[in-house]
Design a protein around this nucleic acid. Sequence first.
DNA 1: AAAAAAG
Length: 614
Amino acid sequence: MSYSYFSDAYAEPSRQQYPPPNYLPPNPQHFSDHPGRYNSNDRARAWTSAGRGSTTAGRFGGRSTGRGFEHTNARNPNQNYSQNYNQKVQNPNQYQTISERFTKLKLAEEENATTGINFDAYEDIPVEITGTDVPKPVNTFAEIDLGEVLNDNIKNRCKYVKPTPIQRHAIPVALAGRDLMACAQTGSGKTAAFCFPIISGVLKTTSSAPVYGRREMVAYPLALVLSPTRELCCQIFEEAKKFCFETGVKVAVAYGGAPVYPQLKSLERGVDILVATPGRLTDLIERSRISLAKIKYLALDEADRMLDMGFEPQIRKIVERLDMPSRGSRQTMLFSATFPTEIQRLASDFLKDYIFLSVGRVGSSTDLIQQKVVFVEDSEKRDYLRNLLHDEKAKGNLGKNALTLVFVETKRSADSLENWLCRIGFPAAAIHGDKVQFERERALRSFKNGVTPILVATDVASRGLDIPRVAHVINFDLPRDIDSYVHRIGRTGRAGKSGLATAFFNDKNSSIAKAISELMKEANQDAPDWLNQYAESHSSSNDYRHGSSKFGGRDFRSGNGNNADDGGNADYRGTSNSYYDYAPSPVAAEFSTSNYGGGGGGGGYESVVASGWE
DNA sequence: AAAAAAG
């Protein structure tokens, strides 16, 4: 297996001026045995056999960010995962090389092709659960009482053989009626993780028919699922509909950019579960077409994005100022791949006595994704991209079954890059927020079905979208925050498949050099020396996005352990269970319990977090 | 200084 576009590229005269020679990756051999992308038919086959199309929403695969475990580690040096983590840091050589792991997983992918999910990728997955009275995880769907019809859908229609790690832990928590903050990469089965308990709960409730006022109806959904983009909203809706098949549970969708009337018609037919984006939802509430008064379940997908600056007021309005029942009288579940501390703090306003769950690999958010960073000046990016795409194409890594997703910074550059790519013979589509909804959906469709194997996108496509067969994510422009980077590269390497992520880096990106470098290290991949140098000379930022290890992956409530005895935070004291999932011995026996709220225990936490709580 | 989300 040869993977050599680096050497090829550098041999070209047109590119010899950059990157400067000293920016060359120190060890070209590192790239010489790239394991290649998955045989992209795997998924297609899997889905065909399951009788599904390829547009199904994310439910499998992926890893979550394991960041933050190191803090726990500092505090509990005796725990299993901590030891493991230490070993990793101190002696990386004792571990299999990336390519060995890739090869192993590649083989496993093929074996697992029929189930559509590569469970071997979840070996030894670390799990952290904090909160009071944590319900025990389950190992099979059979152990969960979801109701007969739903069980049948899961088993016979969706062909789910066993729950993914996030599902194993989140479903029991949700069924116990507990609020939940869950950290796991999109595509790891989060949609199902919150849909199953909601559907099951709705089945036990009397459906509420729309109430007719003097003239028009008002819909009273029992469950609300919010998503930050329209496309993700559609994806969740499709997924939920499938789960609800023949259960009698009614799902409806409401998002902007599309005609209101059909959405209203479907609301009129009654709705149990409403999947929506914030704008259209608020609009419909204010027009008194929807009331949230009967909401029993609230789920926020990509919750950290939803609570991000600029978005948060809208969400807060929906959750706190409109007619939504207060926390405690509804069940709230937040899901995301990244959960920065600041966001956790905001989110805790929506939750009551919640359980924090983090499922991911220690020290690696992305170990199935081979990350590469190359130094490319802005003015040379197009040339570089052209050569890169030519090489990938020559190797069969670009085409109908090996899609390439190119992220750019602005809507304008998305259009212009799309145009240029088409002109130079690479069929491409573009998606961004200035296109009308129809164009957005058309672009996504032509990408998914391989008509345009290249999609140029802004961050509208960075989160949650489950696009099978994405073999390569190119960060043509790096994002300004590392969370976005994590989400973007998470569009590949899904369902336990391997993937490649290439980033074009230059001076303008120095603020996230450190974060990328750390992310790569934690994924056991070698960041180039020049990147590490950037990381060192630009390590000052206190911004949580640029700082180190603040993705979440760890319950921010744990940070105030030292104050537990003052009584003020008693509500937040909980038990933490950290252990390896898919361990050889029964999971229950693997629980190693420690009390994070017990005070003392050696601090070592980000002071930012602790002081924030005072 | 960007993107997203209502029309």
